[in-house]
Amino acid sequence: MNKLHSNINQTLKTYLRVLKLTKKPSREEFLMISKVAGLGILAIGLAGFIIFVLLVEMPQWV
């Protein structure tokens, strides 16, 4: 039990150390991250839609 407590304590200390190093992004940084994430979501959605159309509609063409 003591070893488990020690591991949890060490993990929490590591998390706190990382949180202390972080900072709030500026408005420009936030907007850039949002745009990149949005484009990534759109690209993955488009790829999924294209695969869906190929698998559903293509067999009917033959």
Rank of each mutant, 00 (worst) to 15 (best):
I33P: 02
K35Q: 11
I41G: 02
N2D: 08
K13G: 10
L19G: 08
V18A: 10
L42Q: 09
F52C: 09
A37I: 11
K24N: 12
V62T: 14
G48W: 00
L21F: 06
N7T: 11
M1N: 15
F30N: 06
F52W: 15
S6E: 05
M32T: 11
L19K: 09
I44M: 06
T14H: 01
A43P: 01
M58V: 07
E28A: 03
H5R: 06
L42H: 11
M58P: 03
G45F: 01
L21I: 12
A37P: 01
F30A: 13
Q10R: 14
F49M: 12
T11R: 05
V56N: 05
G45I: 07
L21R: 15
P59H: 00
H5G: 04
G40L: 13
M58C: 02
K24F: 03
L39E: 10
M58I: 01
L42R: 13
L54P: 01
W61Q: 11
E57I: 05
N7A: 09
L46I: 15
K3I: 08
I8M: 05
H5K: 06
N9G: 08
A43W: 01
L54Y: 06
W61M: 09
T22V: 04
E29I: 00
K35E: 13
K23E: 03
Q10P: 00
M58A: 03
G40P: 00
M1E: 13
K35M: 10
F30T: 09
Q10W: 04
G38F: 14
L12T: 07
A47V: 15
N2R: 12
V53I: 11
K3H: 03
K35L: 13
G38E: 13
N2L: 11
I33D: 10
K23P: 00
L21H: 12
G48R: 00
I51N: 00
I33T: 11
L16G: 09
V53A: 09
K20C: 07
L39N: 15
R27E: 09
S34I: 14
V18Q: 12
M58Q: 02
Q60M: 09
S6A: 06
G38K: 13
